[in-house]
Design a protein around this nucleic acid. Structure first.
Length: 848
RNA sequence: GGGCGCGUAGCUCAGCGGUAGAGCUCUCGCCUUACAAGCGAGCGGUCGCAGGUUCGAACCCUGCCGCGCCCA
């Protein structure tokens, strides 16, 4: 035990010791030999390896760690893996920026390639394989940094069980699950209009959309009707060549005469029908709108339900296609071809003005526009061939089944269930899982090429499961040779990769060994806990439920614990992109890990909490206090381990331990309910009362200096030792470092493997009410001294306690300690009316 | 527009039918054989507003107002 205990250095010391002693390893054999209820399995969120961790991450991962530590102390085998989400677009972006390269799949692999020292002005095109290698290299570096931070945070994960979403196992798992989905008809490919990000040149899923308010303008444009002009108002006049119909509401009397007739588009003179549909809004603009292929998702619905032709004009790059669509005069379209959407709009507006078909000036408005959440340009809709997994967006029965799955999960807090149900019930399409990107899990699919070299999509060639994982762009399907790749009569790889969520939605399967250790998987799945933040309920949580529903016919976990965000003083979510993120490492070093964890524990599940450095000091103070009281009880007072649990003879000691039974019961119930905040609160409140009142009351007796019978000293020491042992363990999940330090001074083994305290290990014979009465009496004496502005060591000549009749005996019970702690010469106890009061007469020497 | 959550002391939050709580801040004290990075005491609130139910309402019900998040 050090002379002057401090928090500094505890992290380094214990992180190393825990690793050396494998304190947090998962004992597979022992777990499998025990009943399932003795295992606690956690589906840890794999952080985005290419991202950066901020204080918000530290908080939420700490929440999970507190739960894990609690369950470990109750004797369970805690299955607590860590994952890194390194596959996907964020990594591609980081590699592009870090090395100044871009992926050009048409280039050959360069075995001797080394990336530039510094990114150049222009991005250097490199082959897909070289690009993927850079992704692998950089994520490995990033992941090592993450692990270091997590160890410093004290996460008790099993570092022998770390997975990566791009690893061979993850790729095989994702491909196998996909093949199963395909075989069962749960996955399919379809050529369909798709929301498309023109910057990243990839399709995006509904879950990745967000609406952003953007300025726009209504352009009032005249179409030539049978009996004069028909005016529509549109924010996207550049889509005029893509117009296939006009639409109004069936009840709209203004346009009923036009239904079934045709009108001619301005500039292009294309005949388009006027149709009726319930989704047309009478009070929006002129009440009649043009349907284009495609301007927005409503256009897609109209196009599909009304069986309209397709006149696509926007290409993958967001520019107008080189050729006019069928039926649109090429000569008029020619000068628009190749323009961006923005410049095409400008030109069309000029042309409409010249032709007189634009009425008045455009009316500026602000309206919501759909964006890819990671994108900076509005999404377009292009028709492409994509892979989907059915998620209920087009099937009410499936939707209901998935809602029912959500009800099998216990949500913490309960109201987060609504987020899930809202999302599932609002789905309007299946889950688009293919991405036109490079660093991801490829689809294990090839296509035969016909004599014209066109892929035969109807008959995909699937990789055999025994061969997984495969890379169809380098592996060759059975019955073909590499020289047949890309030639007529040969074969071609499916060029796409799966979206990251399509792999991370299998995190329970990946982490639990579905593909590698069926025995383990059978034991730990469904897992006990999915911890995550509320922003990804619609993505990660939902997609994981979908995959387990299909593959295992079960929910993937029994509980979902949803953390809130750490927000800045303006209540904005902390995030790197907003520039308000606090780097965790500085805070951890300034206040110590335990202090930061203490603050994290103060954020209840689901509740956002503001980042406030002042609060860190409070946690730090608690951790220091624990070191100090430990040193005092074990050092100065000389309590020893063999006294833990030995009988106490003094009522004050018995009362303390009986009161502690209530604390243990309440803290345990709270932990079982995932309410670590409440567990800490009751423990902490008791802990400070223990330090400030109980220790102060009994220390003279414990020293054997109060002149009373000698058993009193033994009783005091036994009470202190027992309480310290219990408090040490109750605080261990939140303050792993300080508690381990104190534990090491007098016990063997790690406190984190010690049994969680139970009510049974504490005596029931005391009167818990005595704790409060003793504190009240002591406080009254202290108040007298404080008001007299004298030291707490000032002697008291006489004190007269007026106690309610039913408390007189309790005051008598604490007499011995009260006299010693208050340095009271004569203590009288009298029954009185009202609350307990003490008349204090200070000894003359003490008065000023 | 729909859903969910939240409005309690200057700040952060408990309490969710029976006399308004904690921590921080602030003020005033105190070297007390663990801790001055400490200890003691004190100041501070018509519990968002308005109705209703009840013997009794921060707490239950209704309606407003404000804030946040999710979804359109």
């Amino acid at each position: 035990m050090p002379d002057k205990p401090t928090l500094e250095g505890l992290e380094a010391k214990w992180v190393a010791a825990w690793a050396r002693d494998d304190v947090y390893g998962f004992d597979r054999a022992a777990a499998l030999a025990a009943p399932r209820s003795q295992t606690y399995a956690i589906d840890t969120p794999p952080p985005t390896a290419s991202g950066s961790l901020h204080v918000g991450h530290v908080f939420s991962y700490t929440h999970t760690d507190i739960v894990a530590r609690y369950h470990r102390m109750t004797g369970k085998h805690v299955f607590y893996p860590m994952g890194w989400d390194d596959n996907g677009l964020p990594t591609e972006r980081r590699v592009q920026n870090f090395y100044g390269v871009r992926c050009d799949p048409s280039l050959p692999y360069d075995a001797g390639f080394t990336p530039p020292e510094k990114p150049g002005k222009d991005q250097l095109p490199i082959s897909r394989r070289n690009f993927v290698e850079l992704c692998e290299q950089l994520t490995a570096v990033d992941e090592a940094e993450f692990e270091k931070l997590w160890r410093q945070v004290g996460l008790s994960v099993d570092w022998g069980n770390v997975y990566r979403t791009i690893s061979e196992t993850s790729r095989a798992t994702a491909q196998r699950a996909f093949l199963h989905n395909l075989a069962r008809g749960e996955a399919y490919a379809q050529e369909a209009p798709t929301l498309w990000d023109v910057t990243f040149r990839t399709a995006v899923a509904q879950a990745e959309l967000e609406d952003r308010e953007r300025p726009g303008a209504y352009h009032r444009v005249a179409f030539a009707g049978p009996e004069g002009p028909v005016h529509i108002e549109t924010t996207r006049p550049e889509l005029l060549p893509a117009c296939v119909a006009l639409v109004a509401h069936p009840d709209d009397e203004r346009y009923q005469p036009l239904f079934g007739q045709t009108v001619r588009t301005p500039l292009f003179g294309v005949e388009v029908p006027v149709v009726a549909h319930r989704l047309a809004e009478k009070d929006k603009g002129s009440g009649i709108a043009m349907i284009c292929t495609f301007g927005d998702l409503t256009d897609v619905i109209w196009w599909r339900e009304l069986q309209l032709p397709t006149r696509a004009i926007i290409g993958w790059d967001g520019r107008l296609l080189p050729d006019a669509p069928d039926g649109v005069p090429a000569e008029v379209y020619a000068e628009l071809a190749g323009k961006t959407v923005f410049s095409a709009q400008q030109r069309i507006v000029e042309l409409l003005r010249e032709s007189g078909d634009l009425e008045g000036d455009p009316k500026p408005i602000t309206h919501p526009v759909k964006f890819f959440e990671k994108g900076e340009r509005p999404l377009e809709i292009v028709t492409t061939r994509q892979w989907y997994i059915r998620n209920g967006g087009r099937d009410a029965d499936l939707r209901a089944a998935l809602v029912a799955r959500g009800r099998e999960i216990q949500w913490v807090p309960e109201h987060m269930r609504h987020r899930y149900e809202n999302w599932v019930e609002g789905l309007n399409g299946d889950w688009l899982i293919s991405r036109q990107r490079f660093f991801g899990v490829p689809f294990p699919v090839w296509y035969r090429l016909d004599d014209a070299g066109e892929p035969v999509f109807d008959e995909p060639i699937l990789a055999p499961e025994s061969a997984l994982p495969v890379d169809p762009s380098s592996d060759v399907p059975e019955g073909f040779t590499e020289d047949q790749r890309g030639v007529p009569g040969g074969f071609a790889a499916d060029p796409d990769v799966m979206d990251t969520w399509a792999t991370s939605s299998l995190s329970p399967q990946v982490a639990s060994g579905w593909d590698t250790d069926p025995e383990l998987f059978g034991h730990v799945f469904p897992m006990d806990l999915r911890p995550q933040a509320h922003d990804i309920i619609r993505t990660w949580l939902f997609s994981t439920v979908v995959r387990a529903h299909y593959e295992q016919g079960q929910v993937p976990w029994t509980h979902a614990a949803i953390s809130g965000f750490v927000v800045d003083p303006d209540r904005k979510k902390m995030s790197k992109s907003k520039g308000n993120a606090t780097t965790p490492i500085d805070v951890l070093e300034k206040y110590g890990t335990d202090a930061v964890r203490w603050r994290a524990a103060g954020a209840r599940p689901g509740a956002d909490s503001p980042f406030d450095e002042v609060q860190m000091k409070v946690g730090r103070r608690l951790a220091i206090k624990l070191l100090n009281v430990g040193k005092f009880v074990l050092g100065s007072i000389g309590a020893t381990a063999d006294l833990v649990g030995t009988p106490v003879s003094e009522p004050v000691d018995a009362a303390l331990l009986t009161r502690l039974r209530e604390v243990v019961a309440e803290a345990t119930a709270a932990m079982e309910a995932y309410n670590y905040t409440r567990a800490l609160e009751v423990t902490e409140t008791f802990f400070w009362q223990f330090c400030d009142d109980h220790v102060e009351l009994v220390k003279t007796r414990a020293y054997g200096e109060d002149g009373g019978p000698a058993e009193g000293a033994t009783s005091a020491k036994a009470g202190l030792a027992t309480a310290l042992s219990v408090l040490n363990r109750l605080l261990a999940p939140v303050l792993p470092f300080a508690t381990e330090e104190v534990w090491s001074w007098w016990r063997t083994g790690s406190v984190h493997r010690a049994p969680w305290p139970t009510v049974e290990e504490l005596p029931a014979g005391g009167d818990a009410a005595l704790v409060g009465v003793a504190a009240e009496a002591l406080a009254a004496v202290r108040k007298a001294k404080s008001e007299a502005k004298v030291s707490m060591r000032a002697p008291v000549e006489s004190a007269v306690v007026h106690a309610p009749a039913d408390q007189v005996a309790l005051v008598e019970a604490v007499r011995r300690d009260l006299v010693a702690a208050g340095i009271i010469s004569t203590l009288t106890v009298e029954p009185g009316e009202g609350p307990l009061t003490v008349d204090v007469v200070l000894a003359p020497a003490a008065e000023a």
